[in-house]
């Protein structure tokens, strides 16, 4: 399925926003969060460019499940490092083990529901971290209120991930056409929330 002109414009804007975040939006952070956010927004940037170039069929590749895990995991690692220092080592271990587990269960012929369970657990924990942590912090007044936008971005990317996951399992919540029509807008809105949250909410 080919992206329309509107889709391409939205994808280009997403790529530009992600590029801004990588190049200027994370200056002044510690080394680990910089690395983690660079990876997360870098994947968003390259993904937007590849969908722009190859069309939505790029999302059919089996590697998408592995690559899309990188975004929430990296963001969550960065957030935990910055905002929940006591959880740094265990969360980093979870992120590495979770990613490796997803990569292995998606690359090797693993029988049963293990690949789905591993994916759901890894995505679930990382997604909840991105969704809840910024909102809790902003409600507690430990950050600016707009930092909660990062949580909104986490929720939105979770919605996108769910739509794509159910589509891939053959039990789509919405039709493929509807999902693809929504996807570029959802990706832009997600990226905007992340970028705005980091810019105005710290």
């Amino acid at each position: 399925m080919k992206p329309s002109t509107r889709d391409r414009a939205l994808l280009l804007l997403t790529a530009l926003l992600a590029a801004y975040q990588v190049s200027a939006g994370i200056d002044g952070f510690d080394a680990l969060p910089i690395a983690a956010y660079t990876v997360a927004f870098g994947v968003l940037l390259v993904a937007a460019l590849l969908i722009f170039i190859l069309g939505f069929d790029a999302l059919d590749s089996p590697i998408v499940a592995i690559v899309s895990t990188i975004i929430p995991l990296s963001l969550a690692v960065g957030l935990i490092h910055q905002r929940a220092a006591s959880l740094r080592p265990p969360y980093l271990i979870f992120a590495i083990v979770g990613f490796l587990a997803v990569a292995l269960t998606r690359s090797l012929p693993v029988p049963g529901k293990s690949p789905t369970i591993v994916l759901a657990v890894t995505h679930g924990i990382a997604g909840l971290t991105i969704f809840l942590l910024p909102i809790i912090l902003s409600v507690q007044g430990k950050t600016q209120p707009l930092f909660s936008l990062v949580g909104v971005g986490g929720a939105l990317i979770g919605v996108g991930g769910l739509l794509l996951s159910f589509l891939k399992t053959g039990k789509p919540i919405l039709s493929r056409e509807t999902i693809m029509r929504l996807f570029p807008g959802l990706l832009l809105l997600t990226t905007t929330c992340f970028v705005a949250g980091f810019k105005f909410g710290q």
Binding site: D27, T38, G42, V46
Partner: peptide, 18 residues
């Protein structure tokens, strides 16, 4: 080149490598 731009170039290069 500025460190931020280098990061961005690194990301774009990683896409090319992939």
């Amino acid at each position: 080149m500025d460190w931020g731009f280098l990061r961005l170039l690194g990301v774009l290069s990683a896409g090319l490598f992939a």
